[in-house]
Amino acid sequence: MNLTVNGKPSTVDGAESLNVTELLSALKVAQAEYVTVELNGEVLEREAFDATTVKDGDAVEFLY
């Protein structure tokens, strides 16, 4: 899956889609429990991480 992460191209191997929690784990995001996630310009509530799917071509920003 090809994404733009914090403005840079990134690839997650072996996945066509992941939820936000899985993406944080796959990318080994440090202190993931404290990060705010913006997906395609929309800031996500932490409670929505498990239910929100990240797909090929999406833009993700991790805000600390």
Score class of each variant (00 low, 15 high):
E42C: 13
N2C: 13
S17I: 10
S17T: 12
S25F: 12
D13I: 14
T11Y: 15
D13Y: 15
L44P: 00
A48Y: 11
V54H: 01
V5A: 03
V35H: 04
V43E: 06
S25V: 14
G7E: 02
L44H: 01
L63R: 14
T21Y: 09
V43D: 03
G57P: 01
T11H: 15
A26W: 15
T36G: 06
E38W: 15
V43N: 05
G7I: 03
T36P: 01
P9F: 09
L63N: 11
V12M: 07
V35A: 05
P9N: 07
T11P: 06
V35P: 03
A30P: 14
A15W: 13
L24W: 02
V37H: 01
L63D: 07
E33Q: 12
A30T: 11
S17L: 09
Q31S: 11
E16G: 11
E45Q: 12
L44F: 05
D13G: 11
L39R: 00
G7C: 07
Y64N: 08
V37K: 01
L39S: 02
V60E: 02
V20I: 13
V37R: 00
A59I: 15
K8V: 13
S10Q: 14
S17Y: 11
V54F: 04
V43A: 07
K8Y: 10
F49T: 00
N6W: 02
M1W: 05
L63Q: 11
D13F: 15
L39A: 01
K8D: 06
L18Y: 07
S25L: 14
E33M: 11
E16T: 15
E61S: 12
L63V: 13
S10F: 15
A32N: 09
T53R: 13
A32F: 10
N6F: 04
E38K: 15
F49V: 01
V29T: 05
D50K: 07
L63I: 14
T4C: 14
F49R: 01
E22A: 11
E47Q: 10
E45H: 12
V29P: 05
N6S: 05
L24P: 00
A32P: 13
N6L: 03
D13L: 15
E42R: 14
L23H: 00
L44M: 04
E16N: 13
L18D: 00
N19R: 06
G14E: 06
L24T: 00
N40P: 00
S10Y: 15
V12S: 02
G14Y: 12
E42A: 11
K8R: 12
D50M: 08
L23T: 03
P9D: 06
E45F: 10
Y34H: 10
A59W: 13
T53W: 15
A15Q: 08
V12N: 02
D56C: 06
N19S: 15
V20Y: 03
Y64L: 08
L23W: 02
D50R: 06
Q31I: 10
G7D: 03
Y64M: 08
F49S: 03
L24G: 00
A30V: 11
V54M: 04
T53D: 07
D50H: 08
E38M: 15
P9E: 07
V5P: 02
L18W: 07
V37P: 02
V20Q: 00
T36S: 08
T53I: 14
L23Y: 00
T53Y: 15
D13A: 14
A26P: 00
F62K: 02
D50L: 08
A30E: 12
P9T: 08
L18K: 04
T21V: 07
F49A: 01
E42M: 14
N2I: 11
G41L: 03
S17W: 11
E42N: 12
G7W: 04
G57S: 03
A30F: 13
R46Q: 06
Y64F: 10
E22Y: 06
V12F: 11
Y34S: 09
T36D: 06
V20K: 00
E61V: 15
D13K: 14
E38D: 05
V12D: 02
G57C: 05
L44Y: 05
Y64W: 12
A26N: 05
S17A: 09
K8Q: 10
E47S: 13
N40R: 02
V60T: 02
T36E: 06
E47M: 09
V54N: 01
Y34M: 10
D50S: 12
E38C: 15
T21D: 04
T4S: 07
A48V: 10
V5W: 05
L39M: 04
T36F: 09
K28G: 13
D56S: 11
M1G: 03
S25P: 00
A51E: 10
E61F: 13
V20E: 00
E16Y: 14
G14R: 08
T21C: 11
E42H: 13
T11C: 13
G14D: 06
A51N: 13
V37L: 06
E47L: 08
S17H: 10
F62N: 01
Y34V: 11
E16A: 13
T4K: 09
T53Q: 13
F49D: 01
A26Y: 15
T53N: 10
E16W: 15
E42S: 11
A51T: 15
F49C: 03
E22P: 00
N40M: 02
A15P: 09
Y64K: 06
A32S: 11
E42T: 13
E22Q: 13
E42F: 12
L63S: 14
V60N: 02
A51Q: 12
Y34G: 07
T36I: 14
V35L: 12
D13V: 14
T52M: 06
R46D: 02
V20A: 01
E16C: 13
G7H: 06
